[in-house]
Amino acid sequence: MSDRSRQPDQERRNFLGTAAAATAALAVAPGLTLFNVAGAKPEDQAVTSENRWGMLVDANKCADGCRACVEACHEENGISSRGRPTTDPQWIRTVTLRDRATGRETRMPVMCQHCEHPPCVDVCPTGASFRRADGIVLVDRHICIGCRYCMMACPYKARSLVHEALDDQVAHNPRGKGCVESCNFCVHRLDEGNPNPACVEACDKDGHKALLFGDMSDPNSELSTALASVATRQIREDLALNTGVRYQGI
């Protein structure tokens, strides 16, 4: 294409990129190793199926009345409310289940379950709804026509349509009227080498530690170790979607 040697600015950009990565690592408080920057994927490399990102939700630790994960998610991704609960998009919500026989209540957050066999992808007529190689299910808003088939197909009610024109998007999460969206496991953080979604960070910060995020295909990850040692379930496991989000205590 063009003569790369005639672009002094590129060096500056590379430097800025490196500096940004370094800052991301330094921003973590001393003594607290939240992620390993050395393990971050180089920014010019595609994601692969060597990873499968997933989450374990411990419903026993989900605190009554707490909305930390919901608020953190919507803050991180620029999901603002118009005060219209029936059409305001929601990427994550808290659900309370009540056992009619005993009265026992269980509370947990529900978001896109990042299915291995996602019905939302099966029904999408345009190919906008897709599963990334590393297991994250996304909507390519450049292709989405807003038909909402995926919303009907999703057994978890995880997706929302943006009903109104927006002008308050955050730079790392472009979104707009007429497209469907849902939890993306904070993919912008992940691609920078920070496997710590906003909801998990918020839940940890409040001391509940009900959410654990990690790589399900790495047998040594904290998540895999937990999944191998405690009894966990998938919501609607009868559908055999092999969800990336698993629940403990339900």
Binding site: M1, R13, E43, Q45, A46, V47, F130, A133, D191, E192
Partner: peptide, 28 residues
Amino acid sequence: VEPTDVMRRDHMEFLKHQRDGTVHQGIR
């Protein structure tokens, strides 16, 4: 990031190429 005449003519192609790489493959 590219010579001005190239950017004038082709910026949309660069952006389109980049967007597919970013959205689908996580290339940043």
